[in-house]
Every structure is written in C-alpha cells, then in structure tokens.
C-alpha cells in the first residue's frame, strides 16, 4: 500500500518535472526568437509578440480561412493517397519475399532523391492547381509508408501465419485478425514519417503551383516582404505539425510498448 502510494507520488513528480521542462523549452525558444528579433531587426524577424498578434488577426479574418481549408483539403487528400497506396503496395511487397528484396534498394534510392527537382515534371503532367499539389504531397509521403509497411509484414513471426492456417482462417480474416494487429505498431511509425513528408510535399507544391492556400500565402508574403504574416503562417504550420506529430508519437510509443 505504502509502496503503491510512493510509486504514484514519484510518477506525479516525474510528470510535474516533465511539464516544467516543457515550459522551459518553450521559454527558451521564445528567448532565442526575441534575441534574433533584436539582432536582425523588424525586416527579418518580427518579434514573438508581433507574430502572435498577427496570427490572431489572421485567424479572425474570414478571408484567411479559405486558404486554410484549401491546404487542409489538399493535404488530407494527399495523405489519404499516401497512406492507402503505401499500405497496399507495402503489404504486396512484404508478402512476397523476392519482390520485397528487389524493391527495397529502389525505394531507398527514391526516398533520398531531392524530389523538388521533379516539380516541373509534375506541373507539366498535372497542370497548375489542386491535382499537382496532391500529387506532390503523395510522392513525398508514400515511400516511407511503403518501406515501413513492407518491413512490418516481412517481420511477422511465421508461427502466427501457420497458426492462422491451422485454424483454417481465410485470407481476409487472416489479414484482419492476425496480420493487421501484428504490424500496426510499425505501420504507425511509417504513418508518422509519411505524415510529416506529405505535409512538406503539399506545402512545397503550394509554394510553386498554387493561387490559394497557406503555401501560397507564404510565397506571397515572401515576395511582398511581409515578415509578420510570413512568420505568423509559419508559426501556425509549426504548431499544427508539432501537435499532430506529437499525438502520433504518443500513439506510436504506446503501441510499441505493448508488444
């Protein structure tokens, strides 16, 4: 009893310290930011306060929201394609040993080329607009999903599959009840990286090939030298990306610990 009490106390103090550390990190970032502002002046870095108030102004401006929805829509679509496509291709390659071995270095090579070089080709193929953005986001995000899914399926212990066969489970129920639960933790790790890269790809697509969206706002405020807007939009993206990625990380860690 006393021991349990002590353990829960130590968990609580650990949590309190974690919170304290997080606050310190945020404060540290703000201090560095403010310092950069003093160092470089208003032309380069608007102060944290000016940026946040600009962001609030943007969020209250009804003209801002169509840009947010545009980006979210493109990103959501690209993410859907990257995840579904990556899952299907990954399971196929992982299920067949030889094709997996043949494909892996090709995938690694594709993963590490600067895909931004391909943007003229994407524009020529898809034209300006939504489809080019979605295509750009998808090609960035799909490869890590394929790689992680493939490795996850490949590493499923053969005894699971033999048991499924012994129990006379069909391929569908094997996939749903055995393969999926066994591979979910690794696939979630792949999704996490795929999520980040899809966002990156979609935004790059918007920088070059769009008349709307947050990426377009970034490039426009770059051209107009509107630093507060540039930083406010960047801050919004940073917060969105960090929060989503953090949530995925928690899911990821919980799933990986369970095994």
């Amino acid at each position: 009893m006393a021991q349990a009490q002590e353990a829960s106390n130590s968990v609580r103090s650990e949590r309190a310290r974690g919170l304290q550390d997080a606050i310190l990190v945020v404060l540290g970032i703000l201090v560095v930011w403010q310092g950069l502002h003093w160092l470089a002046g208003d032309v380069a870095v608007s102060s944290p306060w000016a940026t946040v108030s600009r962001l609030v102004e943007l969020l209250l401006d009804p003209g801002f929201w169509p840009n947010v929805w545009e980006t979210l829509y493109a990103f959501g679509l690209a993410l859907l394609y990257a995840l579904l496509g990556g899952l299907i291709i990954g399971v196929t390659l992982g299920g067949h040993r030889l094709s997996g071995e043949v494909a892996e270095p090709i995938l690694v090579a594709l993963y590490s080329i600067p895909k931004i070089t391909l943007y003229p080709v994407i524009l020529l193929l898809f034209g300006l607009g939504m489809s080019a953005k979605v295509a750009f986001g998808t090609i960035h995000g799909i490869i890590p999903v394929i790689i992680f899914t493939m490795n996850a399926v490949r590493n499923v212990a053969p005894v699971y599959l033999r048991t499924a066969r012994a129990l006379r489970m069909g391929p569908l129920s094997t996939g749903w009840r055995v393969l999926l639960p066994a591979t979910v933790p690794e696939i979630v790790s792949g999704f996490r990286i795929g999520f980040a890269l899809t966002l990156l790809g979609t935004l790059i697509g918007e920088l070059f090939a769009s008349q709307r969206g947050l990426g377009f706002m970034i490039i426009r405020s770059m051209e107009r030298h509107d630093v507060p807007t540039l930083l406010a939009v960047s801050l919004l993206l940073f917060l969105f990306a960090t929060l989503c990625s953090w949530a995925l990380l928690i899911v990821d860690r919980r799933l990986n610990r369970r095994l």
Binding site: G18, D21, A22, L24, V25, A40, V43, A44, V45, I193, F195, A196, L197, L199, L200, L203, I204, L207, I218, M222, V227, L230, L231, V233, S234, L237, F238, A241, T242, C244, S245, W246, L249
Partner: peptide
C-alpha cells in the same frame, strides 16, 4: 538526459515542419 527528455518531442516532430519556410529569413539575415 534531462535536457534530452525536454527537447525529445521537438526532435521527433522536427521533420514535420517545412524548414524551407525559414529560407526568406536567412536571406534577410
């Protein structure tokens, strides 16, 4: 380790942030 625990979430989500958006700042700096 304490510093590491504190910045760990930042490291983990770093690549979700498109770093290119800071490029114009560097040009000004």
């Amino acid at each position: 380790p304490r510093l590491r625990r504190a910045v760990d979430p930042l490291l983990a989500s770093y690549y979700a942030v498109p770093v290119f958006i800071f490029y114009p700042l560097f040009i000004v700096i």
